[in-house]
Simulated assay, not measured.
Amino acid sequence: MISWWISSLQLVELFVSSLVHLAYGFYIFSTAVAGDLSQTFSDWIFKPNLAAGLRRVDSEKSTTVDDLPPIVLVHGIFGFGKGRLGGLSYFAGAEKKDDRVLVPDLGSLTSIYDRARELFYYLKGGQVDYGEEHSRACGHAQFGRVYEKGHYPEWDEDHPIHFVGHSAGAQVVRVLQQMLADKAFKGYENTSANWVLSITSLSGAFNGTTRTYLDGIQPEDGKSLKPISLLQLCRIGVILYDWFDIQWLKAYYNFGFDHFNMSRKKIGIWGLVCCLMGKSGPFASGDWILPDLTIQGSIRLNSHIQTFPDTYYFSYATKRTRKIMGITIPSGLLGIHPLLFIRVLQMSQWRYPSDALLLIKVTGMKIGGTMMEHSTPYL
C-alpha cells in the first residue's frame, strides 16, 4: 500500500514538473516570437532613420587584431547563442555591449566533447570535425556545421581569448583547452593551451549535478535513463523535434543533433522507431550532455583535464541553500526561480543510494552525503 502511494506521488510530481517545464518553454518561445514581430514592425516604420544610424555607427567602429582580446561567453544546457530565439539574449544582452563579446550557439543538448569541437570551429572557421574515431563510436557523422568565416580566425597563441562559461559551458571551455594542448584538431598542429588567456566560471558544474539523477539518470551507472522520468519525456520530445525537421522552427531553436541525421527525410519511419526504442541516436550512444553532468561523467572528464600555468582561472560559485538544525533547505522563495525551487529542495535532501557503487572516488566529495556543495542546477 505504501509503495503504491509513493508511486502515485512520483507520477503526480512527474506530471506537474513536465507541465511546468513545458509551459516555461512555451513562454520563452512565444516571448521570442513576439519580440521578433515587434522588432520587424518597428524596423518597417523607422527603416530610413535606422539605416542611416547603422551606417554612421559602422563607420565609427573599427576592430583589428591589435584590440583587446575578445570575450567568448559559453552557454549552459538548454542554452542558446546569438541569433537563436529571435532577439532574446542568454547573457542578458552582454553581446550587444561590445563587438568583442561573442556568444556562440552550440548544441543545447549535445555532449561536452561535441560542444568543445563546435566552439573551436565557430572561432576559427571551417567545417566542424568531430573526429573520425569519436564519430564512429557514437554513431554520428564526422562532419557538421560549416562556418564560412570564423568569428575570430586570427586566434592563436599571440591572440588568445578570454572565456566565460556558465554552468555546463564552463566545462566545455576546459575540455576545449585540453584539446588545444593535445593538438586534437586536424590541420591545426600549432594549437596550445596558451590560446586561452583566462577561463571564468559562472556556477560551473565541474563536479556534476545531482539534478541529473532527480530528472531521470540512473545513479548506478550515470548514463541510462529510468523508464518513467522527466528525461524520458525530454528524450521523446527531442527525437520528434529533430525527426519532423521543421526548418523555421529549428532556425529559432536547435538541440544540436543535426550530425546524428535524425530527420524524417533521412531515416524515415523505421529510423524514428529505432531512435524511440533506444537503438540509435544520441540517447542510445550516450553522446549527449546529461551523462556528462552526472557525478560519474564529471569524474571521467576531470581525470583527463589539466590546468595550465599561463592561464588565469576564476570560478564564481553560487549558493541558494542554508542549514537549519543540520538540514539543508532552500534559502527562501525569493531569489530562486519558481521553476527551480522544487528541484533545489529535492537536491538538498538527495542522498546517493547505498546500494549503488562508484568505481572512482573523488577526493573531498562525500559519497552518501549531500552534494549541494559540489553541484548546481543546470540551466
Results as ranks from 00 to 15, higher is better:
L9S: 06
L11E: 01
V16A: 02
V20W: 00
A23M: 10
F29C: 06
D43T: 01
N49Q: 12
G53E: 01
S59P: 02
S62Y: 14
L68F: 11
P70I: 05
I71H: 07
V74S: 06
L85T: 01
G86S: 08
G87N: 13
Y90E: 10
A92W: 13
G93Q: 11
E95I: 06
D99A: 08
V101I: 15
L102W: 05
L109C: 04
L109A: 07
T110F: 00
S111K: 00
R115N: 12
F120G: 07
Y121H: 12
Y122H: 15
K124H: 07
G126T: 08
G131H: 11
E132A: 12
E132Q: 13
E133R: 13
R145Q: 09
R145L: 08
V146A: 10
Y147F: 13
Y152E: 03
P153E: 01
P153M: 00
D156N: 15
V164T: 09
G169Y: 05
V172P: 02
R174M: 08
A181G: 05
G187W: 09
S192T: 08
N194K: 00
L197P: 00
F206N: 02
N207V: 00
G216Q: 09
P219L: 02
L225H: 10
Q232V: 13
C234D: 15
I239G: 00
D242Q: 06
N254W: 02
F257H: 02
M262G: 03
M262R: 11
G268M: 04
W270C: 05
C274E: 15
C274F: 10
F283I: 03
S285T: 11
S285V: 04
L293M: 14
S298P: 02
I299A: 04
H304C: 09
Y313S: 01
K319I: 06
K319L: 03
T321Y: 10
S331G: 07
H337V: 09
F341I: 07
V344L: 11
S348E: 04
W350Y: 11
P353A: 04
D355V: 06
D355L: 10
L357C: 07
L358P: 13
L359K: 15
I360P: 01
M365Q: 14
H374L: 04
Y378W: 12
